[in-house]
Design a protein around this nucleic acid. Sequence first.
RNA 1: GGGCCCGUAGUGUAGCCCGGUUUAACACGCCUGCCUGUCACGCAGGAGAUCGAGGGUUCAAAUCCCUUCGGGCCCGCCA
Length: 597
Amino acid sequence: MKRSHYCGDVRATDTDKEVQLLGWVHRRRDHGGLIFIDLRDRSGLVQVVFNGDDKKLLAEAEKLRIEFVLEIKGKVVKRTPETINKNIKTGEIEIAANYLEILNTSKTPPIEIADPTNEPDEMVRLRYRYLDLRKDKMRENLIYRHKIIKAMSDYMDNKGFLEIETPFLTKSTPEGSRDFLVPSRLNPGRFYALPQSPQLFKQLLMVSGMEKYFQVVRCFRDEDLRADRQPEFTQLDIEMSFVGRDDVISVIEGLLEHSLKALEKDIDQYRGKIIPLISLPFPRLSWEDAMNRFGSDKPDLRFGMELIDISDLVAGTECAIFAKTVKSGGVVKCLNIKQKKLSRAELEKFEELAKKLGAKGLAWMVLESDGPKSPIAKFFKEHELELIFKKAQAETGDILLFAADKFEMACNVLGSVRMELGKKLNLIDANSFKFAWIIDFPLFEYSETEKRWVSRHHPFTSPQGTLDDIEERFLKDPSSLKAQAYDLVLNGVEIGGGSIRIHRRDIQEKVFKILGLPDKEVQLRFNFLLEALEYGAPPHGGIALGLDRLVMMLAGMESIRDVIAFPKTQSALCPLTGAPDVVDPHQLKEAHIRIAA
RNA sequence: GGGCCCGUAGUGUAGCCCGGUUUAACACGCCUGCCUGUCACGCAGGAGAUCGAGGGUUCAAAUCCCUUCGGGCCCGCCA
């Protein structure tokens, strides 16, 4: 049984041809003696007519219901001008059926496949995912995803990269996210871990002399879920030998340019999608600039409203909160909301948000024609206010929001407020795609919970500078050490990150030491890496792109789940299969596992 | 671990604030009948809901209170 055409591909040029179609009943319009069926397959819709000339066939067609699976044979006929349907690709023709076989019937589906406006509760969508995936939106998203990943693979191949698979059953490493563990039946009491990323294997492949590696690979992290985070997700993982930061960056820029262009070819398979126009090279911002100007290490560059640092202007004022903050090494920053009205209640909402994020408060000034209305204006002298207004380019009708805190806290708080304002005040053009590189990240950050310095990227990231430099600067101020790391950001979302790696044992050991990892632990967990670095490891570096997130952004979706065929709920459950589930006691016994009750 | 929002026929919603004229409404879908040019077909009729679950307040609870379950968004977490 073979089809002659896909439903969506039949055209006026096929007129008078006998065709054979396979598909699902999308909609039916039963006029009694005349029945229309919209037949759907992956390619789209075509109208099939049972015109009543053949009474037996018509009687059979009367049995048809939504989502029945059919084999249809018939003749392609041109529609009369007044019956042409411009809304579908096949609207100039229809199929005059002369044969119908019902290959399968269908219960009434809990999801209205033909109605794009009716989107059921996500629980229903995931429970009946195979039906949800029949809808245009999801089908188009999955095709779009396939096309872009295929284009990426082709590009990598053309550039001489080898796709090499790395193990899923691997070793748990300290640092980083929580591992998913897999018990080893053959080795009682021992566990594999699913990889958080193929990081160490791709480095070992560089030691192996593979030079250019890539992999479209699943990664696993047992952390709490978000709209853009799933416990398993897909990366385009890349590693190269003998490269520096700019080499990696230019590969990715070329990759994205190529892949987005390739999407244009198949645009009719995912109508409604925008193919972003991008211009190379992407802007680069140092981490510090990104924090200073946008209050985020993944700034959304689709709108302005940058943060303004007024620390030097308030240090000597009588505004105690501001002056004290600056004196103790913190910063005072503000946002200028140009010519927008916000009620006192709305301003208080933003203060609430700031406090939730850990700020002590959020001060505001409403610049009215008769002067600034503000709880804190009285602490400033006239000329002090004027300097602040000048720096913030504030004029009557503007509103200023202030945060005073340690550098990162003040930036993050105003950065979040900025994003909320951007959404609330409609400053964001949903059709624009702003890529940017964030570079010169700090190598370490201090973990308050662990009371020690931890890697901001990962412990294999090469520091900027020489070994002596590193020792000296670490002793003086660990936060001043910069990493040879880079993140790719799109519209305020981190879609990739990478670094030049450490390829010398002595430096790697030094970093482990700084991180406070006991020698024994290092020996146990990372000895294989340290050893490998001693056998002619070339300088190398790479990057990984989060493909789910990238596709989500490009496809205009708000959730990563809309570009994953079978995702999990926020509590990491699969409503379709019921995973995770209890297992048979025999299986537990074989895995040498006892459940603590 | 914490904050916020949601849960009403198969699906999407209204009703909830301020308890009683509600016999829980509307749209889609479903069922029956009619219909030869529709394409969101139309027309006539019909079935379908213990209002997530449990408890409480009250003469009276979808509506108020408490508990609990499930879903979503966020903070923490995500080298």
